[in-house]
């Protein structure tokens, strides 16, 4: 148990050293974070400047969905995406063949592929996300009980696990089609999680709930925060995220066996 944690610490340290070498990137990163935060927030403000509620979602609860979206997105940018993205694409490890060196390391390949690169700047995004969540709670006007907070944290963890599982599965597909940028497809769909799934029409809502469950990632924790979550959905979402994680790991491992390096 100690060894993985020590490895993670080393990965974080090397990532920080790599990133701090480029000063200008800090300001660019800051600008991009603020733009992502500002456009997201203004989107909700503009919408609720015209209406009071839509499909049972008020300003406060929609803000909570945005807060969860930003928070989970920050965790994704912290290590999940930087690590997994180096596998895919035309300059990715699987296409170029440098994945050989990753396979040779004496640790579990899925673990190594998932935690080896960190972008600590995402902690700033995390702060912005938590800010939006705090604003949402004050807007809602309900008192936050301990049970709400615990269910919120549990569903948030389940949502993050679901996101990791989906990204892992998409990265695993690279072994079947090395050049295709599956993560780009997912990026587009993940953006839809900014708003409650209830706001999307029937077929799309089903797609976002069951096929590519990004709606589950943000809508359910927001419901937990507002106290609208039933125990069935709570247990269901937990089981769902674990099942998804097992499925994605199996897919990734199946993909590993297909990897035959690159010629020349």
């Amino acid at each position: 148990m100690l060894q993985p944690l020590r490895l993670i610490r080393i990965f974080i340290e090397t990532s920080v050293r790599n990133e701090t070498a480029y000063n200008a990137n800090f300001w660019v990163g800051l600008l991009n974070s603020l733009l992502n935060f500002g456009t997201g927030l203004l989107g909700v403000i503009v919408l609720f400047g015209q209406i009071d509620a839509v499909g049972g979602w008020s300003f406060g609860s929609t803000l909570a969905v945005l807060g969860v979206y930003l928070t989970v997105g920050a965790v994704r940018d912290l290590f999940i995406s930087p690590s997994l993205d180096s596998l895919t694409g035309m300059d990715g490890e699987v296409w170029v063949g440098t994945f050989d060196f990753t396979l040779l390391r004496p640790v579990d390949t899925q673990f190594l592929a998932s935690v080896r690169r960190w972008r600590l700047f995402a902690l700033f995004d995390l702060l912005l996300g938590l800010d939006v969540l705090a604003a949402a709670v004050t807007r809602l006007g309900t008192t936050l009980t301990a049970i709400h907070l615990i269910t919120f944290l549990v569903t948030l963890a389940a949502g993050t696990l679901t996101l990791y599982a989906i990204l892992l599965a998409f990265s695993g597909l690279v072994f079947w089609s090395p050049g295709f940028l599956f993560s780009w497809v997912f990026d587009g769909i993940f953006q839809m999680a900014r708003y409650p799934v209830r706001l999307y029409p029937g077929a799309l809502r089903l797609l976002l709930t069951w096929i590519i469950p990004v709606g589950v990632i943000t809508t359910i924790p927001a419901q937990a925060l507002t106290g609208e979550l039933s125990p069935v959905v709570l247990i269901g979402s937990l089981g769902f995220s674990i099942a998804l994680l097992v499925g994605a790991s199996l897919l990734f491992r199946g993909g590993l066996r297909r990897y035959a390096s690159a010629s020349s």
Binding site: G43, L47, Q50, I51, V54, G55, W184, V185, D187, G188, I189, Q191, M192, R194, Y195, L199, Y200, P201, L204
Partner: peptide, 18 residues
């Protein structure tokens, strides 16, 4: 092109539902 299409598509759904 798919990526650029998504933001307007989201607001299409949000406003038409609203």
């Amino acid at each position: 092109a798919f990526g650029w299409m998504v933001p307007p598509l989201i607001y299409l759904f949000v406003w038409s539902t609203a």
